[in-house]
Design a protein around this nucleic acid. Structure first.
Length: 446
RNA sequence: UCCGGAGUAGCUCAAUGGUAGAGCGGGUGGCUGUUAACCACUAGGCUGGGGGUUCAAGUCCCUCCUCCGGAGCCA
C-alpha cells in the first residue's frame, strides 16, 4: 500500500490533484503534489507557518508563507489545530532544515475537519490517561512504531510456517471445556449451556495434524486470571504450530529457527522503527541458532549458584526466569519440567517418569517465557489415566482421546505469545503497549 | 486475593494545619526558517466521594472508590 504513489489523478471536491503518500514524497522532488493527512504539530514565525503533517506512511513539514498563498490558505494555516484532517497542495523540495530532509512548499491547503481541542499534547502524560485515550494515543510516533513492528512479527510468523509447508487451521474461540484445566477461563452463556473462551487452540490443532501433517493456529486467547504484572493481558494473541511425527528435539529445533527468523525479519525490515524506539539492536543480532538447551534441573542449579531461594519441584517465577535467562546472550530453552506442574497432555520422559517432555523458551534481557510447548502424550490408556488424575471430565475429552485410537503418532508443538515477543523485541517495559487495545484486569475501555 | 504507592486546572506536577500555584495545552497579540520554537498578556479549581478532629483541613484521622507498581497465578 505504501508504495502506490498516485491514487487520484482527478480533481474532486475537497481534494487536489495527484495524491502522494508522504513516504514517497522524496521521489517527487520538484513536483507539485497533494498530501492528505493529519496535523501533527505546528510552529510559526510571523508570516510563516510550519505545519507537520502525518499520513500514516510518514511525516512531512509543510511551509505556508503569507506572500506565496491566498488569504484563505494563510488563515487556514493560522487557525488549524492539532489533529485536524488536512489536504495540502504544494511543491516537494529538499531542505536540510526540514525533519526528514524534504518539505512541502504549500500553494493551497484546506481543512477537511477542524479538530476539537486535542487531549494529548506534545508534553508528558501518565499511563492511565493515555490508556483512557488509547484510540487517540495510537497516533503518536512511538505507538505507530510499535504497531509496525507487531505487524512485522505477525507477518514473519505466518511467512515462516507457510514457507515450511504448514497449513493454517483456525481453531474455535468458544469451547465446551477447559483445554488444560490449569487456568481460569472466561465463562459465557451459549444458548442455555456454559461455554468458555479459548485459552489455546492446541487440542484442535492436534486433531488437524492427522489431516494436514504440519499445522498452525493463530488467534486470540483468553485467560481470566487476576494477574497484574507487566507480562499479562486477559486477551492476547498466540501462534501455535503442531507437527506430526515430531519429538521434543524436533520441537526445539523448530522453536529456535522460528524465533531467530522473527528477529531477523524485524531487523531487516523495521530498522527505522527500532531506531525510533531507541532499541539497542546488538542483543537482537545475536539471536541465532543454536540456542542453549538446559534441563529444568540445570536451570534450578543456576538459581542455586546465584543464591536465589528456590524449592525444587516448583515452577519458575518471573524473577527466576530473569536470573536464568540472564546467564545467556540469546534465548535459552529449558526442558523436562516436573510433570506435576505441567498440563495433563504432556508426554513423560521415558528415562524419568517424574519429568515431562515440555520446553519453555526464555527471552533474554529479562523478558522471560515467550514460548511454552512440548511433546504430547500419544498413548490412549496413559492419556485416559492423566485426564482422571487431573480431575478432568472424561466426556469432554472423548474426541481428544479418539485421536489416540485412530492412528496415533508421536507429535509436538508449542505456543508463542505475540505480545511478550513484541515487548521483548521493542524492549518495552510492559505488554500493554504491544497491542492496539489491551485488555487487562482493570482495562476494558476503550 | 495479598503488600506497597498515588488521586490538586484539560495534562504533568507544586503548595510548615492559616488567601491554591507553575509548566504545557486553550484564547488574544507579536515575530519570514521554526525543530516538543520563542516573547507578552489572558481565561481556567466542589483539591476522588463520604464522615471526623480543629478557631481553621489540599495537608491530620477513619472509611469507600479509582488507578499505578510488585507478589501470587500464568503465556
Amino acid at each position: 500500500m505504501e508504495s502506490s504513489a498516485v491514487i487520484n489523478r482527478t480533481t474532486r471536491k475537497g481534494g487536489f490533484m495527484k495524491h502522494v503518500y508522504i513516504a514517497d514524497a522524496g521521489s517527487h522532488e520538484g513536483q507539485t503534489v497533494t498530501v492528505k493527512g493529519w496535523l501533527h504539530n505546528k510552529r510559526s514565525s510571523g508570516r510563516l507557518w510550519f505545519l507537520l503533517v502525518r499520513d500514516g506512511t510518514g511525516m512531512i513539514q509543510s511551509v505556508v508563507s503569507q506572500k506565496d498563498v491566498q488569504e484563505a490558505t494563510f488563515e487556514a494555516a493560522r487557525t488549524v489545530n492539532q489533529e485536524s484532517s488536512v489536504i495540502m497542495r504544494g511543491t516537494v523540495i529538499a531542505d536540510e532544515r526540514a525533519p526528514g530532509g524534504y518539505e512541502l512548499q504549500v500553494e493551497e491547503m484546506s481543512v477537511y475537519q477542524q479538530a476539537e481541542e486535542y487531549p494529548i499534547t506534545p508534553k508528558e502524560h501518565g499511563t492511565a490517561f493515555l490508556m483512557d485515550h488509547r484510540h487517540l494515543w495510537l497516533r503518536s510516533s512511538r505507538q505507530r512504531a510499535i504497531l509496525k513492528i507487531r505487524h512485522e512479527i505477525i507477518k514473519a510468523c505466518r511467512d515462516f510456517f507457510d514457507s515450511r509447508g504448514f497449513t493454517l487451521v483456525d481453531t474455535p474461540i468458544f469451547t465446551p471445556a477447559a483445554c488444560e484445566g490449569t487456568t481460569t477461563l472466561f465463562e459465557t452463556e451459549y444458548f442455555g449451556q456454559k461455554a468458555f473462551l479459548s485459552q489455546s487452540g492446541q487440542l484442535y490443532s492436534e486433531a488437524a495434524i492427522a489431516a494436514l501433517g504440519k499445522v498452525y493456529c493463530f488467534g486470540p486467547t483468553f485467560r481470566a486470571e487476576k494477574s497484574k504484572t507487566r507480562r499479562h493481558l486477559t486477551e492476547f494473541w498466540m501462534v501455535e504450530p503442531e507437527v506430526a511425527w515430531a519429538d521434543l528435539d524436533d520441537n526445539m529445533d523448530l522453536a529456535e529457527a522460528f524465533v531467530s527468523y522473527i528477529v531477523e525479519k524485524v531487523l531487516e525490515n523495521r530498522g527505522e522503527e527500532l531506531k525510533q524506539l531507541e532499541r539497542d539492536t546488538r542483543p537482537l543480532e545475536r539471536v541465532q541458532p543454536p540456542f542453549l538447551r538446559i534441563s529444568y534441573d540445570e536451570a534450578a542449579d543456576i538459581l542455586k549458584q546465584e543464591g536465589v531461594s528456590f524449592e525444587l519441584g516448583n515452577d519458575f517465577g518471573g524473577g527466576d526466569e530473569t536470573v536464568i535467562s540472564g546467564r545467556f546472550d540469546r534465548p535459552v530453552m529449558v526442558h523436562r519440567y516436573p510433570a506435576a506442574i505441567k498440563a495433563f497432555y504432556m508426554k513423560r520422559d521415558p528415562h524419568d517418569e517424574s519429568r515431562a517432555l515440555g520446553v519453555d523458551v526464555l527471552a533474554p534481557e529479562g523478558y522471560g517465557e515467550i514460548i511454552g510447548g512440548g511433546q504430547r502424550e500419544d498413548d490412549y490408556e496413559t492419556l485416559r489415566k492423566r485426564i482422571d488424575e487431573h480431575g478432568l471430565p472424561q466426556d469432554a475429552f472423548q474426541w481428544y482421546l479418539d485421536l489416540r485410537r485412530y492412528g496415533s503418532v508421536p507429535h509436538s508443538g508449542f505456543g508463542l505469545g505475540i505480545e511478550r515477543t513484541v515487548a521483548w523485541i521493542c524492549k518495552l517495559p510492559h505488554v500493554r503497549e504491544t497491542i492496539p487495545f489491551p485488555r487487562m484486569m482493570h482495562r476494558l475501555n476503550p
